[in-house]
């Protein structure tokens, strides 16, 4: 019975190695695609990475805090609309967009968290869904921003330059942000704070009996998660050059959950892989069949039924069998 006691992912953890491999592969995507003349796909992979950022943000509260938010796309929308709002006010700087989006997401998270975090389990799911829908209908009501049609916008400027016009520059900007956020979350989930968050997931009453007041920790995680998701929202606005309420529809929130569950909750690499795979499959299956959603649903069902820990558990089990370590749980 050998079991690393660390709060994954730890140093030397196979999951970290998988993540580094993924990042390395992503880094060579643009030159590779341009080599074979498929430049168009660069923006597809950019989109995959943006969704990975959103999925990572959800994994922090869902996987580490057992807070199943069914309204997380609200923050995606808030980020995108913050970028749109600032852009229409003549503020084009990308970093100012990030700052504005973070502020707006923090405010929304503090208000909704103060209410939603008083509930547990299914009630939390329902309340977060309700707040998500509130954001959705709020965006629809913004006639100045195109109502339910949404509105197009030009890409933000970087250091006063229109660098993001290039798909390749945008790609690498997103990749850098993805790596930074992944690294930050890896550290965060192994910190004192992360340990407490994991504790609340394991048994919140036990944590109170140890002497923790858990609400502030959950709130902090919720706000951090919201800000990261809003950053993904700013990026998607830049990538699509279009912002619409569907960015924060409940289907989108559901998609985020699917990504995290498909990859495996509570280890970050799962969310990363799950998001890349979901968007990738969406693109591929949509080409291959009109009924791609059905195929995708069946794949998801298979994963949930045969490997409840998601793909990361599946990989671990298979590699465990190969190295003879066996299954530890």
């Amino acid at each position: 019975m050998t079991q690393t006691p660390s709060q994954m992912p730890a140093k030397g953890d196979p999951r970290i190695r998988i993540a580094l491999c993924i990042f390395a592969c992503l880094a060579i995507v643009p030159p590779l695609l341009s080599l074979v003349g498929l430049d168009y796909y660069t923006s597809v992979v950019t989109r995959m990475m943006i969704y990975a950022i959103a999925a990572l943000s959800l994994d922090l509260i869902l996987g580490y805090g057992a807070l199943v938010s069914f309204g997380h796309a609200a923050f995606f929308g808030i980020g995108a609309y913050a970028a749109l709002f600032l852009q229409t006010r003549g503020i084009t700087d990308f970093f100012l967009h990030l700052a504005g989006a973070s502020l707006a997401a923090t405010a929304f998270a503090l208000v909704t968290g103060a209410i939603a975090l008083r509930t547990r389990g299914v009630y939390f799911i329902m309340i977060s869904l309700a707040f998500g829908q509130m954001a959705f209908f709020f965006f629809i009501s913004l006639s100045a921003f195109g109502g339910d049609d949404g509105m197009s916008l030009s890409r933000a400027t970087l250091f006063g330059q229109e660098l993001l016009r290039s798909e390749v520059t945008l790609f690498y900007l997103v990749l850098v942000i993805l790596v930074v956020i992944f690294g930050f979350l890896c550290r965060l989930t192994r910190s004192r704070f992360g340990r407490v968050l994991i504790g609340t997931r394991e048994d919140s009453l036990r944590m109170e009996a140890i002497g923790y007041r858990i609400m502030p920790y959950q709130m902090a995680a919720y706000v951090i998660s919201a800000v990261i998701c809003a950053i993904a929202g700013v990026l998607i606005a830049n990538q699509l050059q279009y912002v619409s309420p569907t960015l924060s529809s409940w289907q989108r929130s559901g998609e985020f959950i699917i990504m995290v569950v498909l990859g495996g909750v509570g280890n970050l690499v799962g969310a990363l892989a799950g998001a890349l795979l979901t968007i990738g499959l969406e693109e591929a299956l949509a080409r291959f069949s009109e009924h791609w959603k059905l195929w995708f649903g069946m794949l998801l069902l298979a994963v949930v039924l045969f490997s409840p820990g998601g793909l990361t558990r599946l990989v671990e089990r298979v590699s465990g069998r190969i190295t003879g370590k066996g299954d530890d749980r």
């Binding site: 079991q3 006691p5 660390s6 709060q7 730890a10 550290r187 965060l188 192994r190 910190s191 004192r192 704070f193 992360g194 340990r195 407490v196 994991i198 504790g199 997931r201 394991e202 048994d203 036990r206 944590m207 140890i210 002497g211 923790y212 502030p216 920790y217 902090a220």
Partner: peptide, 29 residues
């Protein structure tokens, strides 16, 4: 806390009364 190691189950209780748990970077383990 079933998903944590035996040591961490206890360390998390020590942590509760020694210093702040709003530390986001240092590795607790």
């Amino acid at each position: 806390l079933p998903g944590l190691s035996v040591l961490e189950n206890v360390a998390i209780a020590v942590q509760a009364r020694t210093g702040s748990s709003f530390r986001f970077w240092q590795v607790a383990a």
